[in-house]
Simulated scan of single mutants.
Amino acid sequence: MNYVYILKCSDNTLYTGWTTSLEKRLKAHNSGKGAKYTKPRLPVEIVYFEEFQDKKDAMKREYAIKQLSREEKLNLISGFTKEIHS
Rank of each mutant, 00 (worst) to 15 (best):
M1S: 09
N2M: 05
Y3Q: 08
Y3S: 05
V4F: 14
Y5T: 02
Y5M: 08
I6A: 05
I6L: 13
L7M: 11
K8G: 01
K8Y: 03
K8A: 09
C9T: 15
C9Q: 13
S10M: 10
S10V: 08
S10P: 09
D11E: 15
L14W: 12
Y15A: 09
T16F: 13
T16L: 05
T16I: 12
T16P: 04
G17D: 14
G17H: 13
W18M: 06
W18G: 04
W18R: 11
W18L: 03
T20N: 11
T20M: 04
E23F: 10
E23Q: 09
E23R: 10
K24H: 07
K24S: 09
K24A: 07
R25A: 03
L26P: 02
A28V: 02
H29C: 08
S31Q: 10
G32E: 10
G32P: 04
K33F: 03
G34D: 02
G34C: 05
A35Q: 12
T38M: 04
K39Y: 03
R41V: 01
L42W: 14
L42H: 14
L42C: 12
P43Q: 11
E45M: 10
E45C: 12
I46K: 14
V47A: 15
V47M: 10
Y48M: 07
F49P: 08
E50M: 11
E50Y: 13
E51A: 11
F52H: 15
D54H: 12
D54C: 11
D54V: 08
D54I: 12
K55Y: 11
K55D: 13
K55A: 11
K56T: 07
K56V: 11
K56F: 12
D57L: 13
A58M: 03
A58K: 03
M59D: 00
K60I: 14
E62Y: 00
Y63M: 15
I65M: 02
I65F: 07
I65P: 00
L68Q: 12
L68N: 06
S69F: 02
E71Y: 09
E72K: 12
E72N: 07
L74S: 01
L74Q: 15
L74G: 02
L74V: 07
N75P: 00
L76A: 01
I77A: 06
I77M: 06
S78C: 07
T81F: 00
T81A: 12
K82Q: 10
K82T: 00
E83M: 06
I84L: 10
I84E: 15
H85D: 03
S86L: 04
S86K: 12
S86D: 13
S86C: 02
